[in-house]
Design a protein around this nucleic acid. Sequence first.
DNA 1: GATTTTCCTTGACGACTGTCAAGCTTTGAT
DNA 2: ATCAAAGCTTGACAGTCGTCAAGGAAAATC
Lengths: 232, 232
Amino acid sequence: MTTVQDFLDERSTVVAIRATICGVTDVAQRKQDKIARRQVDKFDARRTELAVATLHTLAELGYARTSLREIAQNSEFSHGVLHYYFADKRDLIVEAVRQYERVCVTKYDEVVAHATSADQLREEFVAMFFDTLEKDATLHRLWYDLRNQSLYEEYFRADVLEIDAHREAMVWRVISRYAELREGAPTASSGTAYVTLDGIFQRALLHHLSGNAETVASLRAELPGVIDLLVA
Amino acid sequence: MTTVQDFLDERSTVVAIRATICGVTDVAQRKQDKIARRQVDKFDARRTELAVATLHTLAELGYARTSLREIAQNSEFSHGVLHYYFADKRDLIVEAVRQYERVCVTKYDEVVAHATSADQLREEFVAMFFDTLEKDATLHRLWYDLRNQSLYEEYFRADVLEIDAHREAMVWRVISRYAELREGAPTASSGTAYVTLDGIFQRALLHHLSGNAETVASLRAELPGVIDLLVA
DNA sequence: GATTTTCCTTGACGACTGTCAAGCTTTGAT
DNA sequence: ATCAAAGCTTGACAGTCGTCAAGGAAAATC
């Protein structure tokens, strides 16, 4: 299984495809476009690279104490370069948030896809739930930090709401598939199901980072029952 | 009904009772003690006053952007006085967190106490739930901010965990009383019940502060059903 | 190979931060 | 009334912050 870390590192090489050519026949023009596009791609690739470094720094230090110089130190560049690729700090953080989005929203889909029975789905979901809780703890705590910051600063609230919606949809795919396999129906709405599981995750994260292993264990023991509560 | 604001303002006059006198017979000594105690009380009262000002500033700006000078401006003193009453910024914030604790944990007890039927309890709980959501929105968003900060900085984590436990107990008093009135039993543990309702609250707060009234309304419409889900 | 463009570093700026010492003002004891 | 203590203000300190301009280094273009 790939970790979130692996995913982020790979991402640095991904190139966006752009449709900027429309009806040009001249060869020189096409060549120019090719060059321009390569430059744009290079620019975007570096932007992404720096956004990933930002994401790591944020996960480490939290929103409140993340500075541009600290971010630069987590990359291979100096702090000045950030203003070459980003308009300001906000722009950078928004990009980092969008990087996060690419990571989190497909986490359970493989579990859903390959589960053949309800019991298996439930068991593997629980396993992945607590696996990512521990393995990607700092990244998850960042998510909650950012979601909260959006209550104070409006500038990336739209991105947060979008991510939250994706997370909800992801949970709903699990629950509705589970209901299907159980040949039943969900007892709660998509929103309720999401906040319930997310609430458990948040609490487990808090106690995990507090070194409170037995609370985490009891949350794990209770989770199957909660899932069953969400499906009749 | 008193608002959280009223509660905080009243609090400034509350005086802690201390048992520092033990077996002293001399009159002059007793008088000295009385004076000393009055001074201590005065000291504590001012500490509390400044902690309340801190709480308001935190609620307004969030943890990340709250400075000592800003706090002082929200009080009637200058910034220097904060280091007369508090060792450092941490000390001040811990005290502010403890002030918050005194506010939040008895919110629903009056509802529980005076409800005579299950339907009434459920209805009044929902009403109070969304009433405080809107009225004390900034204070609630501060709570989530602080709880998250405790994932990054350990120094007031113990206080956060204590408050969280109190909130859980408060929710549990509601749920178990509701089960009693319904002549049923809770279907979930205290922890699960808490994270579920808290998750709904958090989501409602996010959408309330985003100006997304219809999402808040639909959460309100769903809440009674969720409560019933938690009680068989 | 020369020159232009892109990329990145360095160092500085003004503003803001927590902290604290010096000193003024008020209060309370004698 | 006198004096000491408590309470509070002011201003400065060493750091850090985001931002940006100047200029060197590297790469692409011709």
